[in-house]
Design a protein around this nucleic acid. Structure first.
Length: 715
RNA sequence: GGGCGAUUAGCUCAGCUGGUUAGAGCGUUACAUUGACAUUGUAAAGGUCACAGGUUCGAGUCCUGUAUCGCCCACCA
């Protein structure tokens, strides 16, 4: 194509991307030259349900910058893309689709339902990746993985089995966070919190024991009263018993450090089955568990025939009324507190006891902390180390099993005979952890064993992203990687888990640098959210202004703090790229034929005049600082500096003087060389940031035979 | 309840280890221009750097406190 007219990305962006794809340079195995060192970036996997939003745009532009930069520096660069099956999220989407058709997943059945999800994935699962291609991302698409690929699934199962063999994975019957709508357990990181106005009811258990509670209905499952061991008021009562009103059950009074003497009355009712703190107190004091609420949020038989089958929420009122009649409510206070809700459907979480699989976190967490403490992994900026350490040092065992259908089914097989015999007591089942279903049940020798219906927490499989599902040779040649770039919200959810998984199974941290960048918010500082209608669609910018302008606008603003999205940065980008386009057009029109010869000995012109020397000196300094900035992940600063140099020093000052110098035959050739030199160097430096326009100008203006994508950063 | 971040021109933001008239993009004003570029050039207006103390020869930059906004984390029932 000819360099003419104004800058119009529509004329070349898609064509250039195709050429890059055809060249194979996104794949490290195809890169020319002697490349000894790897440089690997792991793409934070977008959910298959996702479509490109501003967060992805920033995230992936940053990743593309480091990848393109290192490719030009002569590394074997590999950017590993893929998508996450996103268990609950995807299941939820397909369930909604079914709902429109008037059926639910249970009517469809597990197998049919999963087929439906796969169909959905086939149709929509690739959208986000093609949008990333529009953005110009130079990931190695030939290595695209999906966390439910057969190879990936196989690795996930192997890891599960390995954990089990190491004794780090166990089956337990414990009080877990339960979403009654999704019908599954959730880890604490999958919870959100919302403020709720409620009441604090003071209930009299005896003359000396009054407890304050927000959930009177759970008293039906009380198995103790707890007080702080240092609380003088109750010291003499510890070890004695008290009777639970209404149910008339005698329960002990125990002392536990968990109890805050200053809250309420200082005495707490303990319901191990329906509160995770109470569960722990129960374990310490060997208290029985009485489950009065079931998996649907309804009262169980244990709650008494009067309440059985009713919604827990309704029973609350009834209990209060009953207690009032017995004159056992001594006080009611208005009270505001946070309740946990399901991150996916916002349903209030109901802690209930349930048989689940748990990963022991103590050693894994301490390995992950050591990795950062020893600087094997460096978190940038440093302040994000604190939330990382805080979470890991207070960690509890991870509930990894989920009661949904879409996901990695556990490689666990139950004895059906035992199960029948022990119906109703889930703590005593018999099972085998194995990759394949055993031919013969080792327990009863006669039953057809059945695979556990549970699937794994999605994050269990994404924690293995740096190696799972890769070919054997890739596993060997492309681990560990170098850099992970992401937003702060998945630091613990994902990053920490990749670090200890890598250490556990590959004996090495998966990456050295973790860059946590700011979050893009609306101009008035609100979170961008599709459901709130506050989201801004980057595809709109890509469509209207091109990918380069979009990337420019994002990087321009991404200084490290959270970003209040400002449209004017897009305008600035558009103007700058137009400036770049026109300057290149001018320089190309003044091409000095002798210098188009790439063999030219003299790569760096010396210059005759003061302005010549000044501009050469300036760009050489700029090259150095941009290089350093990229190494330090200071992308925005690098872009601002290049902008300043190119527009004001080069275009406004040098080119204007050059026009005069070219009139002088003695200076003409050197001036033209300098123009071309500055343009070339500028294109090289700008390429990681705005790859399309620079590639086009490189070919059409500089007339280089080497594509810019693999041009050397410095000679 | 704890932690972190922010508070600098009309808007969105830079300003590293404290040092001459505090910078950028966008916007605004005046003039210029068909010569790479009107998605332009030149020039200009616009800030008591949230507030109060302190350290210092000197503070937007360090310390203490206050206020406002935002974000995380939390087992005060």
């Amino acid at each position: 194509m000819k360099l003419e007219g104004a800058y119009d990305p529509k004329l070349f962006e898609s064509r250039i991307y195709e050429e890059w794809t055809d060249s194979g340079y996104f794949n490290p195995d195809n890169l020319p030259g002697l490349r000894k060192e790897n440089y690997i970036v792991y793409m934070p996997l977008p959910n298959v349900t996702g479509s490109l939003h501003m967060g992805h745009t920033l995230d992936n532009t940053f990743q593309d910058i480091v990848i393109r930069y290192h490719r030009m520096r002569g590394y074997k660069t590999l950017w590993l893309p893929g998508t996450d099956h996103a268990g609950i999220a995807t299941q939820y989407v397909v369930e909604k689709q079914l709902k429109k058709e008037g059926i639910n997943r249970f009517e469809l059945g597990r197998e049919k339902f999963i087929e439906r999800v796969w169909e959905w994935k086939k149709e929509y699962g690739g959208i986000i990746l093609s949008q990333l291609q529009k953005l110009g991302c130079s990931a190695d698409w030939s290595r695209t993985r999906f966390t439910m690929d057969p190879e990936y699934a196989s690795d996930v199962q192997n890891i599960f089995i390995e954990y089990y063999k190491k004794g780090l994975l166990y089956r337990g019957f414990r009080t877990v966070n339960w979403c009654t709508r999704c019908g599954t357990s959730l880890s604490e990181l999958e919870l959100e919190h919302k403020e709720e106005e409620t009441k604090l009811w003071y209930i009299k258990y005896s003359d000396e024991i009054v407890v304050a509670t927000t959930r009177p209905e759970t008293m039906l499952g009380d198995t103790a009263i707890a007080v702080n061991p240092n609380d003088e008021r109750f010291r003499r009562l510890v070890g004695k018993t008290v009777v639970v009103p209404i149910v008339n059950r005698e329960i002990p009074i125990v002392a536990d450090v968990m109890i805050d003497m200053n809250f309420g009355t200082g005495a707490v009712k303990v319901t191990p089955a329906h509160d995770s703190v109470d569960f722990e107190i129960g374990e310490r004091h060997k208290l029985p568990m009485i489950q009065v609420i079931d998996a649907y949020g309804k009262m169980t038989k244990e709650a008494g025939s009067k309440h059985e089958g009713k919604k827990a929420r309704d029973v609350r009122e009834e209990i209060v009324k009953e207690l009032e009649e017995l004159k056992l409510i001594t006080r009611i206070e208005p009270y505001t507190h946070n309740v946990a809700i399901c991150y996916r459907c916002n349903t209030t979480i109901e802690p209930i006891p349930s048989a689940q699989w748990f990963l022991k976190m103590k050693s894994l967490a301490s390995n992950a902390m050591e990795a950062v403490r020893s600087k094997a992994v460096i978190i940038h900026p440093e302040r994000f180390e604190k939330p990382y350490f805080d979470w890991l040092s207070n960690i509890r065992d991870w509930t990894v099993s989920r009661q949904i259908w879409w996901g990695h089914r556990l490689p666990v097989y139950f004895c059906e005979t035992e199960k029948q015999k022990l119906a109703g007591n889930q703590q005593q089942e018999q099972f085998v952890v194995a990759k394949e279903k055993p031919k013969e049940c080792p327990f009863c020798k006669k039953c057809e064993m059945e695979q556990s219906p549970d699937v794994l927490d999605t994050w269990f499989s994404s924690a293995l992203w740096p190696f799972a599902g890769m070919s054997e040779s890739d596993k060997k040649n492309y681990y560990p990687g170098n850099t992970l770039i992401t937003a702060r919200d998945i630091l613990n959810l994902w990053v920490a888990r990749m670090i200890y998984s890598g250490l556990e199974f590959k004996e090495e941290v998966p990456f050295k640098d973790v860059l946590i960048h700011g979050t893009i918010m609306t101009k008035d500082g609100k979170r961008m959210s599709k459901s709130l209608g506050t989201g801004i669609d980057p595809l709109k910018y890509i469509e209207q202004y091109g990918a380069d302008v979009t990337r420019f606008a994002v990087v321009w603003q991404a200084t490290g703090q959270d970003i209040r999205w400002d449209e004017t940065a897009v305008v600035g980008g558009k103007k700058f790229l137009n400036k770049l386009w026109n300057a290149a057009k001018y320089v190309a029109s003044n091409r000095q034929l002798a210098t188009s010869n790439q063999q030219s000995e003299e790569k760096i012109p010396k210059g005759n005049t003061e302005v010549d020397k000044k501009i050469i000196d300036e760009i050489n300094k700029l090259k150095k600082s941009v290089t350093e900035d990229i190494e330090k992940f200071e992308f925005s600063k690098a872009l601002h500096d290049m902008y300043e140099f190119f527009w004001h020093s080069f275009c406004d000052e040098y080119i204007e003087v050059a026009k005069l110098q070219i009139q002088d035959e003695k200076q003409k050739e050197e001036t033209q060389k300098i123009l071309m030199y500055i343009l070339s160097e500028s294109l090289i430096m700008l390429h990681p940031f705005i790859p399309f326009i620079t590639e086009v100008l490189w070919r059409e203006g500089v007339k280089s035979k080497t594509p810019l994508i693999i041009e050397q950063w410095s000679h």
